[in-house]
């Protein structure tokens, strides 16, 4: 780890983390306040009117509890997309922009190994995502407790959040490996972004109808089992597979960065 690079990377990306958290807070706040334990709630009636559309965004069935409600309306799509956007932008800023512009010369010409440099950036990439999810989980749970005391199953939501973190670790590994492999910004950002977005789109298509069930084998998002994680009935090994694959991709990206020619 390179202390000064770490400080620089953290400082210059705090704003981005803030923006993503603000967007998530807004959506989270709206969704939580839309939950209504007594009356037949508005979102559920909308879902009944447009089941395909809602299914595409991972919002299926009519959730009965607040926890189900959150998992259904937040964890199925919004919490996949916004942290992913952050991950994409960060991978670009932490690695691709340095290499593409040639500014990486100042890092390589410093008395630190390439391994230390890329490990520093990988840590910032990974930990930013964890911080984002942790703050969201904490804030959202506290808000729920304030609005609907005693309604939320904290541990069930924590399990789903950990599963979500594993999903993002996979996405992150893919994006990071992509920016480490390519020296030009276009493929470096393009390949990782296209693949992750494609995986999400396949997942959305798969949820629309039973006819597209076979699509689940084409996207790793299938391994993110929100319902089972919430109920505590499974989804753990799937999350471990995602995290393991993510780790391998981060590691592979780092090794490639250490060995490749960098024209700077």
């Amino acid at each position: 780890m390179v202390k000064h690079l770490l400080a620089r990377s953290v400082r210059s990306n705090l704003g981005l983390l803030g923006i993503i958290l603000a967007v998530l807070a807004m959506y989270g706040g709206i969704i939580v306040t839309m939950y209504d334990p007594e009356l037949g709630d508005t979102l559920n009636s909308m879902a009944a009117a447009m089941p395909e559309l809602f299914a595409a965004f991972g919002m299926a069935g009519t959730p009965a509890t607040l926890t189900e409600f959150l998992v259904n309306y937040l964890y199925g799509f919004l919490l996949l997309v916004f942290p992913l956007v952050m991950s994409i932008l960060l991978a670009n800023r932490l690695v691709a922009s340095y290499v593409d512009s040639g500014a990486v010369a100042y890092l390589l010409a410093s008395p630190h190994s390439r391994a230390a440099i890329i490990a520093t950036q990988a840590v910032v990439h990974i930990v930013s995502n964890w911080i984002c999810l942790a703050i969201f989980y904490g804030g959202c749970s506290a808000f729920c407790e304030m609005m609907f005391p005693g309604e939320l199953d904290w541990t069930a939501l924590a399990r789903v959040t950990l599963g979500l973190a594993a999903m993002h670790f996979f996405f992150g590994g893919l994006l990071f490996a992509s920016v480490c492999i390519f020296n030009d910004a276009k493929p470096a950002v393009g390949v990782g972004t296209s693949l992750t977005v494609l995986f999400l789109l396949i997942q959305m298509a798969e949820q629309v109808s039973d006819k597209f069930d076979w699509l689940q084998y084409l996207t790793p998002v299938t391994l993110y089992r929100t319902t089972e994680l919430m109920e505590g009935t499974g989804g753990v090994w799937q999350a471990c597979v995602l995290a393991g694959a993510g780790f391998v991709m981060y590691l592979a990206g780092g090794i490639i960065f250490c060995r490749k020619d960098i024209s700077a």
């Binding site: 620089r8 210059s12 922009s97 340095y98 512009s101 040639g102 500014a103 990486v104 010369a105 100042y106 890092l107 010409a109 700077a264």
Partner: peptide, 10 residues
């Protein structure tokens, strides 16, 4: 080292 191209990060 002075790089031939002056590109700076951030």
């Amino acid at each position: 080292y002075l790089p031939g191209e002056t590109a700076f990060p951030g």
